[in-house]
Amino acid sequence: MNRLVTLALSLAFLLIAFPLISIGTTNGPPLLWWLGLMALAIGGILPPLRRVFPPKEPLPKPTKVGLPEDERVS
């Protein structure tokens, strides 16, 4: 899966967790906060998973601010 798509999915899962947990732990059915907790876990696991399943795509292009010419970047 493309890096940006993975992170976009991760972001969506993390964001949706907030209202689900708030509603589920206050007035709504408990199922909602369980779903929210799962969303938090899925959103959190996606970025590190990319280390386990490294992408086949080439690394992203350097931006025009000059990362490749910055030999002191580290």
Partner: peptide
Amino acid sequence: LETLAVGGAKGVW
């Protein structure tokens, strides 16, 4: 787990 969920959700906010 419910406290974990509440903490995590507050972090999102």
